[in-house]
């Protein structure tokens, strides 16, 4: 059994009012420990609502959620404990910063866990290094940082709790390409170093394709499919029908294959594409020789 499992999870907003809306509809998923998963779907497809069930911020209208084998809401007093297991970074997390210094802000989560000061200190220093915040920034007010730094400080605040599952909701929203690559890079690094389960919610296929190994596609409050990258992108036509696009570079190489160029690789990033093109050219030259 995986670390996150749901059984017929359904959530309805505004039950009994004219504004009733089914946000999550009969979702059954099972995510294995150590996996890095992308959750993708266009705006309003229920991604954000779904992930808020994973640490008990929302209570399912019907159905069940199991974290690490334990059912959520079975025992309310365990909820706080489970929240420490599942770290949730919200959209625009920089708007949650409130302390006088970055150091204190990152300490907020670990302190709520009741850790010793030494342990809190160790975690802050480690996560600050992981997210690339220089030690001198830790004594500054979070409101003095740049946009990208604020975002990384806020992510560090959740990472410092060392959750078994880290969920990030649109962590790159509103950042420039450089900031976006930096955040995605640090998420990959974090996953590689800690080996914990990571869920990355996004509506950008490009972002997801670069970072994750498996993809969960949400459409109209339902799970459309949950599979590895290549089998998801193989259904590009269905994806574009629901307003999602396969990364441009993948499209280009699909087309090349259709035109008769032979290669086995699945291409998801520009870097990989570059390597592949160079390799194919090399092979061609050898064949010519």
């Amino acid at each position: 059994m995986g670390i996150i499992r749901t059984e017929d999870l359904t959530y309805v907003y505004g039950e009994g009012t004219p504004f009733r809306k089914v946000a999550v509809d009969g979702v059954n998923i099972d995510i294995d420990e150590g996996e890095i998963v992308g959750i993708i779907g266009h705006t309003g497809s229920g991604k954000s609502t779904l992930i808020q069930h994973f640490n008990g911020l929302l209570k399912p209208t019907s159905g069940k959620v199991f974290i690490d084998g334990e059912e959520l809401f079975a025992d309310k007093s365990r909820l706080k404990e489970i929240r420490f297991k599942v770290g949730l970074v919200f959209q625009y997390p920089e708007y949650q910063l409130f302390e006088e210094t970055v150091y204190k802000d990152i300490a907020f989560g670990p302190k709520n866990m009741g850790l010793s000061d030494d342990e809190v200190d160790r975690r802050i220093k480690e996560t600050a290094r992981l997210v690339g915040l220089k030690p001198e920034l830790l004594d500054k007010s979070p409101f003095e940082l740049s946009g990208g730094q604020k975002r990384r400080a806020a992510i560090a605040g959740v990472m410092a709790m060392e959750p078994k599952v880290l969920i990030l909701d649109e962590p790159t929203a509103g950042l420039d390409p450089h900031g976006r690559d930096r955040i995605l890079g640090l998420i990959k690094e974090y996953h590689a170093e800690k080996g914990t389960t990571v869920l990355l919610v996004s509506h950008s296929m490009e972002d997801v394709a670069k970072t994750v190994s498996k993809i969960l596609v949400m459409n109209d409050a339902k799970v459309f499919m949950y599979s590895d990258r290549s089998s998801v992108f193989a259904r590009s036509e269905e994806l574009s029908a629901m307003g999602l696009t396969v990364p441009q570079v993948t499209k280009v190489f699909d087309r090349l294959r259709a035109m008769g160029i032979e290669f086995q690789d699945e291409v998801f990033s520009i870097d990989y594409a570059k390597g592949l093109v160079l390799r194919l050219l090399e092979e061609k030259r050898k064949n010519l020789d």
Binding site: N55, L57, R83, F84, Y95, Q96, F98, F108, M113, M161
Partner: peptide, 30 residues
């Protein structure tokens, strides 16, 4: 903001009046 701080383990529901008032700081400032 409440959800975000709850996800970081903020306890908004229990404790006496002073503790609850203090627990509001992480919500009111942002």
């Amino acid at each position: 903001i409440m959800s975000a701080q709850k996800a970081r383990g903020a306890d908004l529901e229990s404790g006496n009046l002073i503790r609850r008032a203090k627990a509001l700081i992480p919500i009111l400032i942002p």
